[in-house]
């Protein structure tokens, strides 16, 4: 399992009812269902991912996240997870609102554009960064809203959200999740656990 998914796996409480936005091949939901009795739905638009989910017995709904989550009612989930999709959305800020409308808590992971390797690409060599977490060329990338660890934290504060956990890691290395040492510089993947203030 991908390193960010492993960390999320640890964070999701037993028996939670969750939505997994851009759930891919359903690895996370299938594992959470098996090991933690988690229920819920994955949303995905990639045909191969959807077929893989169905083969695993993961509930998957073909739905484009840019169309929002209007078909999900307020406060009907414990948690909404969205891994590696924020940067590909037309309006990431609105999706954050949507996630915290249907659930109290959200977990979001995305590639940190300020990762030092990315900075070397852009700042020194003068090219748009290409890395394991950002594998596409500038002209065919689905990533239209790249952001940094700091940017996202700023957005959460602007929206008055509570950041209950945040960490950065290196894509293929588990167990190196940290937020202590210059996360904006040394983290390739950023992960945030946010909740809204209760009225």
């Amino acid at each position: 399992m991908r390193a960010d998914l492993k960390l999320i796996h640890r964070w999701v409480p037993d028996g939670a009812h969750i939505l997994d936005l851009a759930c891919g091949d359903g690895t996370l939901l299938a594992s959470l269902a098996r090991h933690k009795g988690v229920t819920g739905y994955g949303l995905e638009i990639d045909p191969e991912g959807i077929t893989a989910c169905i083969a695993k017995g993961v509930n998957v709904i073909e739905q484009n996240l840019d169309e929002g989550l209007a078909n999900f009612e307020d406060d009907t989930y414990d948690l909404v997870v969205m891994t590696q999709a924020l940067q590909a959305l037309r309006r990431p800020d609105r999706m954050l609102d949507e996630m915290l409308r249907v659930a109290d808590e959200g977990i979001i992971t995305f590639p940190n554009f300020a990762y030092w390797r990315h900075r070397v690409h852009l700042g020194i060599r003068g090219y748009m960064p290409v890395s394991k977490s950002l594998p596409h060329a500038w002209y065919d990338t689905p990533n239209i809203h790249l952001s940094t660890f700091n940017d996202f934290e700023h957005l959460c504060r602007e929206k008055g959200l509570i950041i209950t956990d945040r960490a950065v890691g290196i894509r293929d290395h588990e167990g190196h999740w940290t937020s202590r040492l210059w996360p904006n510089l040394f983290g390739e993947i950023a992960i945030f656990r946010v909740s809204r203030r209760r009225d």
């Binding site: 739905y41 959807i50 993961v58 509930n59 709904i61 739905q63 078909n71």
Partner: peptide, 19 residues
């Protein structure tokens, strides 16, 4: 079909949907 899927989701029933 989405109407059915959305209602199933609202009712908390297991469903997969493809278009």
């Amino acid at each position: 079909s989405r109407e059915l899927v959305d209602a199933l989701v609202r009712a908390g029933k297991p469903v997969s949907y493809v278009n």
